[in-house]
Design a protein around this nucleic acid. Structure first.
Lengths: 338, 338
DNA sequence: GTGAAAGCGCTAACAG
DNA sequence: CTGTTAGCGCTTTCAC
């Protein structure tokens, strides 16, 4: 437990610049009371020695670590992975450091949040997390700002940034109606988050407004294998157009359709997430893009501002999605088909 | 900057248990000198108050934070995303917390590593990172244990856990030869990491041992769109079997083959990564699995042991891959084809 | 077996 | 404008 002599402390910088440690701290922090000449001297000394402040010590003193906890569920879901990537990048730009935990089970979420608290994070971002109840409770108890991304169940007093599921469903309906479909189905996921319910509601309501109705509905786990197993049932409903809660479900549905014998007309399909694969020719899937870029920006901005002003009231942002039209929803075989 | 009265400090626990703060610390840390009766009392008091030690303060005192820096490049690559997911989980199991940074550019890597150092991480794990040179340098300067995962360029004195690229290439060759192919090509990525070079070398050498040679070679960026653009050139070489540096390249190649006019026989294809998509019926791609589960376990174990014994010499582990055979490398149309 | 005291590296009153 | 001093919450000698 000896001191590592390679580590430069503010004391060394102070010595070299012939000044006190407080002045070093102030000069580097941009305190306006420090004269330009001393500041320059301090900067030079710091640079010469390669001084990097110890943020752990600073965190202890300031009660603000600059660490933001990020709780994520499943990185195998490309949509979550991309969201995390964007979050990490944007947090970094604001000089915040993400401490990442995976909470894919109730116990996992519990222990994740506990560790985050121990590390005195400045805020917590929970990404599409189930078990958000425990997270909300823990953050409230620990007085930590919390931003829920793509989750808005309960009228909790936490900040939320989420996609507009109702608008997404309506968009899908409008588009499919415009393509000439007259019978419709919904392929749901196995979650019961309000956002995914919104999608279905928005879809059904917009159909109703146009005098149509949902003739079939099926739900599946969000895994390609499982969805592939059950998709045939949905196809047999004969619906001309199917809106899927997720691109993965849409892919499975299309795979099932290809595998079906006979020349049964393939349904028009619209997915949700606009994952990279949706743009590949094999699927060429029309999909609803949640504008992750905006969503993550706003999430980070919200977290940041809550750190800066902890007393400020929770914010709620809703991001409008947009539909990316591709071959899967056009009334002729998509170009990727052979 | 007032004290948050909701935060329980070891002092409160000590008070409740009628004991000193030192004893609280020792009791909770499992110091054998503490009598069982006091330990029980302390535990009870801690539980009653919901005491969670402040790991930032502990880190400052102990010069060991329990934080491990993880530098990752591209989470949109499902292989990296999965690796990160596994790493995070396994670090958590060892009570280590991952501070994640994305270093997809040289400056990104630079600033990432700088921040990690400031946070006094106990070790750094770099995941398939380019710019590993700077990371190696920074970790050496900061005397931080570093584990490179799937990177072993240079004979640096750092620990490395990587897949056996040569074995992977040889496996692909053996398999394709066994399937009856007589002319071979390699579809390379645009990286020049030793591991990816190994793959090609292993492939070419095993071919040579069997009296065959590589009749064509092409490289592409690791993006589906770019690979799709150039793949036709490779297909025109007429090779009967093509080994790809990456599943994404393999998918693009197969897509290009489907799009080609005429009944030109499709080549046998073997990919690398065994991503989830490889198992889907549309591609049904034979691929080499790097055993990420083992690789990440060993990476975390290595990092952990280097934290425990900083003086220990660097370790080098090589993980054997295995080939997962699917339809794309069998001499008849893969079952997913229509 | 337990307590008292010191100190990790930093910053922010409080003085001047 | 700058220095002195205290203290963040924890662990750990050193003393008993």
């Amino acid at each position: 437990m000896d001191r590592d002599k390679t580590k430069v402390r503010s004391f060394e910088v102070a010595e070299l610049a012939q000044i006190s440690r407080s002045t070093v701290s102030r000069a580097l922090a941009g305190d306006p009371r420090i004269s330009e000449s001393t500041r320059a001297r301090v900067r030079a000394a710091a640079a010469q020695l390669g001084y990097q402040p110890n943020l752990i010590a600073r965190g202890l003193k300031n009660r603000s670590t600059g660490i933001v906890g990020v709780v994520v569920t499943d990185l195998n879901n490309p949509y979550h992975a991309q969201a995390l990537q964007l979050l990490v990048g944007k947090l970094g730009a604001r000089r915040l450091a993400p401490l990442v935990f995976v909470g894919d089970t109730a116990e996992g979420a519990e222990s994740a949040i506990e560790r985050l608290m121990s590390y005195q994070v400045d805020a917590v971002i929970a990404l599409a997390a189930p078990f958000s109840g425990q997270i909300v409770r823990a953050c409230r108890a620990g007085r930590k700002p919390l931003v829920l991304m793509n989750r808005h169940d309960g009228d909790e007093d936490v900040s939320v940034v989420s996609g507009d599921g109702v608008a997404a469903g309506a968009m899908a309906a409008d588009h499919l109606i415009a393509q000439g479909a007259r019978t419709f189905a919904y392929f749901a996921g196995d979650d019961s988050t309000s956002i995914s319910l919104d999608r279905e509601t928005g879809f059904a309501e917009r159909l109703a407004e146009n005098g149509f109705e949902l003739s079939a509905r099926l739900s599946s786990r969000y895994s390609h294998a499982h969805a592939l197993d059950v998709a045939a049932d949905l196809l047999r409903s004969g619906a001309q157009a199917i809106f899927c809660a997720n691109d993965t479900l849409a892919f499975a549905l299309m795979d099932a359709a290809r595998g079906m014998t006979g020349g049964a007309r393939r349904p028009l399909v619209v997915g949700y997430d606009n994952s990279a694969l949706a743009g590949w020719p094999v699927y060429d899937l029309t999909s609803i893009d949640q504008n992750l870029e905006d969503m993550t920006s706003l999430t980070v901005e919200t977290a940041h501002s809550m750190v800066a002003a902890p007393a400020s009231p929770p914010r709620r942002h809703v991001i409008s999605p947009h539909l990316v039209q591709r071959g899967s929803s056009i009334n002729r075989p998509p170009k990727g088909t052979i």
